[in-house]
Design a protein around this nucleic acid. Structure first.
Length: 209
DNA sequence: AGCCAGGGTCTAA
DNA sequence: TTAGACCATGGC
């Protein structure tokens, strides 16, 4: 069975070093909410249509109907609009500045994010990692599915995070690249209805279809 | 047509 | 604490 280092190495070799989610912290937060149970292509279209309006100051000043209208194509627009607004207000307390939260411990930030309605563990961890560069392992549906197909039997997301944390360096660059690579693999071939011909891990896959 | 998409909340047992 | 219903929309 492939170890965490083995998995990371194989994905790096197959796909190369991936890009960062976004250089802009607010864009990461916004997209992390919109993508919940939604196809990524819908999020991209929505953000492209918004153009320069995707900034915390603009959204803070935006009417509720307008914000929901932008988010509508991503589904759950009422709830997501409320969450985006709450996140924007939270970020305002730090002056919309990534530097302003540099001294706040990760567990404190995580607790603050989890206190926002509509932000669960995955969304909080995505924000901590890709917006604020904290060394956090993100577990999503693809991660669970890929590890399960590889033969691992984890009982919880906490076990999966521990599996990665025990083997890989605690650096945002590493956990960010790992998560992005797992998404790459998931989107290409490890969907619910899999396409294993294209899978670079097919040889190690315990449940190849 | 029907399933799926990078979740989260709430309720019941 | 865990499983299941529910939430909305667009693509294939």
């Amino acid at each position: 069975m492939l170890s965490a280092e083995g998995l990371y190495g194989r994905l790096l070799a197959a796909y190369g070093r991936p890009p960062w989610w976004s250089e802009d912290a607010y864009t990461v937060m916004f997209q992390a909410v919109l993508v919940q149970n939604t196809a990524w292509t819908n999020v991209q279209r929505t953000c492209a249509a918004m153009g320069g309006a995707l900034s915390p100051a603009n959204i803070a000043a935006m009417g509720q109907e307008e914000l929901e209208g932008h988010i509508r194509p991503c589904g759950f627009c009422k709830g997501k609009a409320r969450t985006v607004r709450a996140l924007t207000e939270w970020y305002a307390r730090y002056g919309y500045s990534r530097e302003a939260l540099a001294s706040v411990p990760t567990d404190v930030l995580r607790a603050e994010l989890l206190g926002i309605r509509g932000v669960g563990e995955e969304t909080a961890d995505v924000i901590l990692l890709y917006a604020f560069r904290r060394a956090v392992f993100v577990v999503d549906a693809y991660t669970r599915r890929i590890l399960a197909r590889m033969g691992h039997g984890f009982a919880s997301d906490a076990e999966i995070r521990a599996f990665f944390a025990a083997a890989l360096p605690a650096e945002a660059e590493v956990s960010g690249a790992l998560h992005w690579l797992l998404l790459e693999l998931g989107i290409r071939c490890c969907k619910k209805t899999p396409r294993c011909e294209a899978c670079p891990l097919a040889a190690e896959c315990a449940k190849r279809i």
